[in-house]
Write a protein that binds this DNA or RNA. Structure first.
Lengths: 225, 225
DNA sequence: CTATTATTAGAACGAACGTTCGAACTATGG
DNA sequence: CCATAGTTCGAACGTTCGTTCTAATAATAG
């Protein structure tokens, strides 16, 4: 009889489930691979990137990669999960230190833009490969996203209450996300403002934008056909 | 000697270059295929969609498709070119009828959002598959995009001049594009506002946002670490 | 040293990819 | 009814895809 079953589906990479008391060599190696994969996914897209591309960029053999994760999809999941979790964590820490509703929205924007620019490639992979994960992986990321959205919506509702404003929170929040998440399509580190300036400018537009009704509207003219 | 050279690369589909005085059966058939392809590209992404998917959705054989276009890439090009050209055309017609700078920006937003919602799938394919076209195809679409950007920037500069405002036109324009182009990630026709209401609300946020300096800022506190 | 476990890679798997070829079919006009 | 051009398709091309098998190598503990 063989020493171990040939039907074993996977050797289950050592410490698959653990609280990570120490960062092992395995973890460090995996993190390296994730970093390389992020670059490749960013440049060629998830579907457009092949496992052979990942192998080349990380300097590890095609088969060797599978010691660290079980599928290409899981790899994307790990990248998105880590990125999204981190940005939410940092947001929570920062929000704890601020009370004024307007300033809390500014903190939200700064946190998002700052992390976005500091981890541009990972954030592009998070934004651009939004609905490619299926089933369990997809719904877990979607859950984090829903939570992130909820936090922003609450900040907005507080702001509305304290200022006595009335507007659609949903459209405001989604417009803000649009402004911020679109950055990856145009941002040029050598020409464009840094995170602090950029988030201040976007914050100006957004906060001023949702405030007063204003009179930028024109007469009801013969425009409408 | 053979009746025609076996080295002929392609049978060149009949009226490859013409001014289209009459809409032929060929044109109509191609348009149908483009419509089906738009749906598939929208749902699975350009890289994720296979020619066999397109064959299935359009009800035509795999080989039969190649009578109408020469490659998958050309197909994406045709979709993007037509979509982008049309939206710019309509914008020009509408802008000719309006003079007030603020109202012209509103026209820009309305035109974009209206077309976006009326052709949601095509616009997602245009926005989401932004940099997958290579070489000639890619640079032609990029040219239209640059022109579209330039038009919006001019509208903004006129607005700034007439109101005596000072802000970064680039960031404002790109924030506006972000708001609008992000729509495809969240819009739900059954729950969300129609094009006119949505563009009015985004117009309110944007125009109000770029106007006054406002006093939504807070004291310079101990926030900055 | 030896035994054991952790890690890596060569070679191959079947499936799916974009594309092409040649033969068929259909429509049209003489 | 034949000739010609327009249109469609089954079958196959060579390539690349994600993944796996198996064995070899490095690291570590006794």
């Amino acid at each position: 009889m063989a020493s171990f079953s040939p039907a074993t589906p996977q050797v289950l990479p050592r410490r698959a489930r653990e609280m990570a008391p120490t960062e092992t060599r395995f973890d460090r190696r995996l993190a390296k691979i994730l970093a390389h994969a992020t670059n490749v996914f960013c440049e060629k897209g998830y579907e457009g990137a092949s496992m052979r591309d990942l192998s080349r960029s990380s300097g590890m053999s095609l088969a060797g990669l599978y010691y660290y994760f079980e599928s290409k999809e899981k790899l994307l999941y790990l990248i998105q999960k880590h990125t999204f979790t981190t940005i939410v964590e940092r947001l929570r820490e920062r929000l704890d230190q601020v009370e004024d509703p307007a300033e809390r929205i500014r903190v939200f924007i700064l946190n998002h833009v700052e992390y976005f620019l500091a981890n541009q490639k990972a954030m592009k992979v998070l934004s651009h490969e939004d609905d490619v994960l299926k089933n369990g992986y997809g719904s877990e990321i979607a859950g984090i996203k829903r939570e992130y959205y909820r936090i922003c919506m609450e900040l907005l509702e507080d702001f509305k209450r304290v200022r006595g404003l009335q507007f659609s929170g949903r459209i405001a929040v989604l417009s803000l996300f649009g402004m911020m998440n679109w950055i990856y399509t145009w941002y040029n580190p050598r020409a464009d403002a840094n995170a602090k300036d950029l988030s201040r400018q976007m914050g100006d537009i957004f906060l001023q934008g949702i405030c007063a009704p204003g009179k930028t509207r024109k007469k009801r003219s013969a425009l409408a056909n």
